[in-house]
Design a protein around this nucleic acid. Sequence first.
DNA 1: TCATGACTTCCGCTGGACGGAAGAGGAAGC
DNA 2: GCTTCCTCTTCCGTCCAGCGGAAGTCATGA
Lengths: 270, 270
Amino acid sequence: MAGNTGTAGRSVTSRALSLLAAFDEDHRRLALTVLAERAGMPLPTAHRLVSDLVEFGALTRTPSGDYVVGRRLWDIGLLAPVQSGLREVASPHLQDLYGVTRATVHLAVRDGARALYVDRLRGHASLPIVSTVGSRLPLHATGVGKVLLAHAPAAVQEEVFRELPRLTPFTITAPGSLRRQLTLVLRDGFATTAEELGLGACSVAVPVVQRDQVVAALGVVVPSLTRDRPRLVAALQVAAQGISRSLARVPAVVGEAAENSAPPALADGG
Amino acid sequence: MAGNTGTAGRSVTSRALSLLAAFDEDHRRLALTVLAERAGMPLPTAHRLVSDLVEFGALTRTPSGDYVVGRRLWDIGLLAPVQSGLREVASPHLQDLYGVTRATVHLAVRDGARALYVDRLRGHASLPIVSTVGSRLPLHATGVGKVLLAHAPAAVQEEVFRELPRLTPFTITAPGSLRRQLTLVLRDGFATTAEELGLGACSVAVPVVQRDQVVAALGVVVPSLTRDRPRLVAALQVAAQGISRSLARVPAVVGEAAENSAPPALADGG
DNA sequence: TCATGACTTCCGCTGGACGGAAGAGGAAGC
DNA sequence: GCTTCCTCTTCCGTCCAGCGGAAGTCATGA
């Protein structure tokens, strides 16, 4: 295992947390043995801590004996102010966009050198979609990613360009190519991908702006772009401008993916 | 023993978790002092544990000094298999429903004696909406709640009927009235509310079925029902049947929501 | 300036966490 | 059926990490 959260944190708390951190998108259910190993601690220790976590509801044991993240943690996690202002404001516009395009719609922000998907609407005839809410995908191989990358600080771009992993035969791995594309993204106001992340999936994306800063990207995924790219771009731009306009009235969605101070505006009733 | 968050659990782990549990919908940001008090532990102890939690990313400190639930916990929480099958399947249908009605759309399951909102689409002209994903609202005062209540086991109905809190002047608090309504819900296949949860909000809801069992309820919220109730009911029923049909091909959406009460499995043995 | 309240740090005591080892449980294999 | 193998569970003596009262620091506001 690549040195993940392991190293068995010193404090009890950090150990318990490293058990939670052992779960990820590719490991949604874990047997105790695996869990202990991934968290980097002896089995009896894991066993004891896991009992506590289960009792609390942070983990749940399936009938088959595996552990999964529990509903209690789901509850609490939803309270996190992760782009809640942005999500709240954008939600209706995503709906509209879906209504017009009937394509899978994505809203993403940049989280370091990755695109963090904060909302998603999925269409009926959906392609094999990789992303779900909470996913982090590479910036260089997704539509929303290219938009976010084009508007990212030089340091981030540099980091991304250092390694451009090939995900399909069509993934752009030549720095020059990508660099040229980013220039076009800035000029034209939209980015596209063609089977660069997964076969059979193309995408278009546009920036979402707040106070002259790109705070998010809005994108759609479709089987092919040859036919109606202009139409999709138009629809996306209308939706993105709608979101941007609403964002102008909201305090602080900005601060990239970093912890935006919870906007009191939409937070609670008062 | 159904203790709340307090009582400062014995083990360090449970103490740390009780700090997380101190957050809820009405307390999304807490100062350290309040946090310590709500979690039922001395301030220095809370301080130390909170540091661990912040370091991990389970909590985040806002510039103002308050604590909020952190992004890391959001991530992990999203991995919970909370109705993920149901949500995934239902998502496109909710979109369609929104497209037709332009009203706020809800998908809820029963969680004990409450309606747990597992998904929501919010319209533009949205009324003051109380529910968000993860909310738990009373069964007797919401459209989806009445549907779920009508199809709930006798024991649950009994529990709900024991106390029918008044939320607005229009909340139904007379057991007889409610009982009669539930009968109609079963007969007609849909439930309605009229400003029973909040003023200015009415709702219609229908059941979602899997293998002859009601596993969820689908509802819309609108400012008034006088005009187009028939239209809404029709749209809801089409969408609900679409979901139900898709669910027939999916293993087991039930059970996930079922084990809400503390499973006696691990309980006293260890 | 002083008072107040919220947070942070200190430090000696102690009780809870640690984890090796041994015991159950159960599913494949002989 | 019996054996083997693997995963999970329980036990228990050692000892160190967590505990929390008390004192110190930093803002705010009177």
